[in-house]
Write a protein that binds this DNA or RNA. Structure first.
Lengths: 356, 356
DNA sequence: CTGTTAGCGCCTTCAG
DNA sequence: CTGAAGGCGCTAACAG
């Protein structure tokens, strides 16, 4: 049996309360007493039973997730994952809530952060950042109020956020460039880039990585000027249609933002152009299956949500975060390794949920 | 506050013990009483606090993992993951142990399964299966003794095992074939396949998928007869050296087993041949970085271990398993999306470990 | 068949 | 500064 607080109390010749004080380094223990207890802890190799501790504490961690509104499928998937995790977060004594704000709207995001921080029982905030000074300021305010903040999917390092939960987007861009280069091989023709907006950090980073990888390819290839589709399917569709008309020898398209529904529509079944896109959604999955899209780079929204919650809890408790464990991978999907579509809604298993 | 057993006892007008009986559907409750309790449960939307339940039960789940011995890096990584998970499994009230048996040795594996099943406190067994009747029989015996068994990495469906934890190897082979075809493009030359042994199911499955994908490529391409390296670096090295000498126009190699150290050594820095291998290990990672290997298909050993433990616990408790949640993905790695090498040993975070 | 009682391992008043 | 006692939500004897 593992040693318990009783064992260490006995061995140290003190009471349970004192052990507890040392364990949670609370004040009110003489240095000698503390030393005795710590010796006992070390000698017995005691490790605290977190489950029991949480039970006794009865503490809960209300975490607020702030995500962009709108029909961006990835963000809606992210929101679904948050709600899903929330339904199963009872065991982790965590209560998740979602707040949506207009996309790319720095003022609204800043206001939402302030509102969440103002609520007395917010234990932490996770937000998809927009790269703007107001947002950075709001994050800084929340942190000064003692509320941990993590950025999600898109970072804002200047804000001093506690942690960023998301992929290395420069590496993601490089991956896309490398795959594009290999898939095209010696085939001639320029490639195009469709972005959402150069105002969000993750899109800029992806572009940077992509251009670097294309430049490093053995075969030089022209990359056309970036098209900005505002992550909007209609705009994207128009832009791509124009592109196709103007560039008959187009070899590839790298879509580094959302709005892929419009891209796919504009391509209308053509599979002769090498297309690489981001985020596995209903749109991109279907296009992958029909061969319109050749590869999808994905960040696992479920992992991101769970990681954000874990990190926020750790920060709230002043515990360290294991960086290696919280790294979000860049998943590559092609038609052949596409996971079966998970049935939405109730994939629950009554208390069995644990996170993988 | 969430409703507790007290609330439902009060609302149903019964005692805690009765509520508990209904909750864990134990015998000794009249149908009417049971109905009252169930009504209260439903009305209050009660969900049991698993942590508290486990605390009260004090039950532990000793699980035995049986893996092949030898220098196969993937298996050693798997073993490391088991030990790592074991160090953090206290919270889940699970105790993991590892037993190694000679690779490809059906008799030894069967004996190890019997031994684990004989131990009175084994709550479940996870084994990397060898495709042989003795093994199937041993698994069947364990299950008859009431001990749940899952196969890990390599399946043995005929054994009647409770569950298989691993990837769809036919799909993995198809993925490899598809990537090989796309990477080679129009480049001429045959491709070779290096396997460990056609006696293990996962290798056969991968080959099947690979051949199917190659056959489906627009460009027909010769696939040379399979080389069996026994997952042994020395044997593999010899075979590949011979292959290179005999086939000057070789375009690609699909290595679907282990022993990749030998493969890489035989290639001695050549990066003109398209090489696709399985499992991200020190060998394959290094070769990916130098360009000797072009892509690695990986199954996340950490996920597999955690999934196996979850499934075994669920089976031991007679709970359902959420198939979608336990599916292991086929990860694709190229140089650009390689995750940073995780420092081995203590990546622990004192009680924070949760599984992603 | 049902209820009472005493913990599981830890935390938290409240006295001393 | 330290200890005793009670409770978190659930389960498990042991009585009735």
């Amino acid at each position: 049996m593992r040693p318990t607080v009783h064992d260490i109390a006995e061995r140290a010749g003190v009471s349970l309360a004192t052990v507890d004080r040392v364990l949670n380094d609370r004040p009110g223990v003489r240095a000698v007493t503390r030393a005795k207890v710590e010796a006992a802890i070390a000698a017995l190799g005691y490790v605290r039973d977190v489950a029991a501790a949480n039970l006794a504490k009865g503490r809960v961690y209300p975490l607020v997730f702030i995500v962009p509104a709108g029909e961006n499928p990835f963000m809606r998937g992210l929101e679904a994952e948050i709600r899903h995790a929330g339904r199963h977060s009872a065991a982790e004594r965590t209560r998740l809530s979602v707040v949506t704000v207009p996309a790319f709207d720095a003022a609204a995001l800043a206001a939402a952060i302030d509102a969440a921080a103002a609520s007395d029982d917010t234990a932490g905030i996770a937000a998809v950042a927009v790269d703007a000074p107001e947002v950075a300021a709001a994050i800084a305010r929340a942190r000064e109020a003692g509320i941990p903040v993590v950025t999600l999917v898109s970072d804002l390092a200047a804000s001093g956020r506690d942690h960023f939960v998301g992929v290395d987007n420069v590496a993601a861009g490089r991956t896309a460039g490398s795959l594009m280069g290999r898939f095209l091989g010696g085939r001639p023709g320029p490639v195009a880039v469709l972005a959402g907006s150069m105002r969000v950090r993750d899109h800029r980073d992806r572009l940077e990585g992509f251009l670097a990888a294309m430049a490093a390819m053995p075969v030089a290839r022209q990359v056309l000027p970036v098209l900005e589709g505002q992550d909007d399917p209609a705009v994207s569709r128009r832009l791509i249609a124009g592109l196709l008309a103007a560039t008959p020898d187009l070899a590839g398209i790298y879509s580094l933002g959302a709005g892929n529904g419009g891209l796919v529509a504009a391509l209308s079944g053509r599979s002769d152009i090498c297309v690489i896109a981001h985020e596995l959604t209903a749109d991109t999955r279907a296009a992958l299956e029909t061969g319109v899209i050749d590869a999808v780079l994905n960040q696992d929204a479920g992992h991101e949500v769970r990681s954000a919650a874990r990190v926020l809890r750790a920060k709230a408790d002043g515990l360290p975060v294991v960086a290696a464990q919280e790294r979000i991978r860049i998943d590559i999907f092609i038609r052949e390794n596409l996971p079966p579509a998970a049935e939405e809604d109730e994939r629950s298993g009554a208390g069995l949920y644990q996170g993988d």
